[in-house]
Simulated scan of single mutants.
Amino acid sequence: MENAQGHPDEGREPFDVAMARNGLVSSLGLSRMDFVESTGSTNTDLLAALAAEPATSHPDLSVLIADHQDAGRGRLDRQWQAPPRAALAISLVLRPVNAQGLPLASDRYSWFSLLAAEAWREALVDVCGLRVQVKWPNDLMSGEKKLAGILAQLYFPSDGAPPVVVLGTGVNVSLDEDELPVPTATSLRLLGAGSLDRNTLVAGYLRRFTALYRDYCNADGDPEAGLAGDGSVLHRLTQATVTLGRTVRAQLPGDREVIGVAERLDHDGSLVVRDEGGTVHTVTAGDVIHLRPHRPDGHA
């Protein structure tokens, strides 16, 4: 069977649910793994489940994967859609605790989206032979084109328990040019990925994310602690974030904006921008509406 561009439908096979569950849940220590053939949004589904079901129903590292997501959301309710089985939609429930079993301070949650970005970046090198970059705060890029988006949302339990994180990722896998949602997007197929197998991609991502996540939590959310036998999350993301060193325009609430050089990531995962007057601004992921390159002619 071929798609409209004449390519075999590699990357659009259904998930092998039994293989994923048998091979990943026990080996990675996942709490549960659920699949749905089609849904509006895996993040929305998990948030609804958290509100409707006992906390024990979705422990830390519960996973939901959709074979097709038709109303995916990005930051600020931006829509993310793809043809059936042409993309990956995966969300996780995170209830982070440190090595002593104590809840992680919620101000340490700001790194989770970037941990997911780093896990995907490493997985795509190994599985697909592709090198992509992280665009702060939550995109994976190849050059100026977006390959994947990440969305972290908080759920606040009514019993006053620590907030829960729902962390979702959407990755364009086998889309062709005429299937892209916007001209500035791309897909693994268009980048010449060595593999488009979504089962392998999910496994690669979850192996890396669970290792990074557990090390980060065990270090009490210290972004400068070594993770998974390698450099810290701050070091890794500093190396991988294409935003750093560029002149950017950050649009903020209230029609405010900051234009300057993105110098570094701070201890909380925020972006430190120095404007041409030398004033340093800290831009948080929760506040920024748009972050785009800024050219000397004043255009983004």
Rank of each mutant, 00 (worst) to 15 (best):
R256Q: 14
V127W: 00
S142M: 06
S195R: 08
D9Y: 03
F35A: 13
V134R: 05
V202A: 01
E179G: 07
T39C: 15
V127L: 00
Y109V: 05
T238C: 10
M19G: 01
Q81I: 14
H299I: 10
E224I: 06
A87V: 06
S142I: 09
L47P: 07
L154V: 12
P54R: 02
V166S: 00
T56E: 15
G11V: 04
D268F: 01
L237C: 15
S62Y: 00
T184A: 06
R75D: 05
I150T: 04
E53T: 13
S232N: 08
R189E: 14
D275S: 04
G194Y: 08
A262T: 10
R264H: 14
Q239D: 14
D70A: 05
E122C: 05
P296H: 02
G221P: 09
V273S: 07
S41G: 11
S31C: 09
N98S: 13
D297L: 09
V248G: 04
D222Q: 11
H299D: 11
T39Y: 01
D220V: 10
C217Q: 12
E13Q: 06
R292Y: 08
P103A: 03
V272G: 14
G149A: 08
P137C: 08
L92E: 00
V182W: 05
V258L: 10
E118G: 02
A193Y: 09
E118P: 05
L46P: 13
V182T: 10
N98G: 15
R249L: 14
I259Q: 08
D255N: 12
G226P: 06
L147V: 08
L147S: 06
L227H: 02
A211K: 13
V182D: 09
A250Q: 11
A193V: 11
L147R: 07
R32V: 03
R292T: 12
A193R: 11
V164L: 02
V242M: 09
L265K: 03
L76A: 05
Q79W: 05
A225D: 11
K146L: 07
T42M: 02
S31V: 04
A117F: 00
N218T: 07
D77S: 08
D107V: 10
L167Y: 00
L114Q: 12
H299C: 10
D222H: 08
Q239L: 15
P103G: 04
Q5G: 15
L61A: 03
H281Y: 06
Y109P: 07
G231M: 15
R12Q: 12
G6A: 07
D178N: 13
D16S: 11
T184I: 11
I259A: 06
G143M: 07
S232H: 03
W120S: 08
D176Q: 14
G286C: 07
G229H: 03
D275V: 04
P183E: 12
V166L: 00
S106Q: 15
L175F: 03
P14E: 07
L196D: 06
A285F: 02
P253A: 12
L265E: 10
L130T: 04
N43E: 01
T284C: 04
R264G: 11
S62H: 01
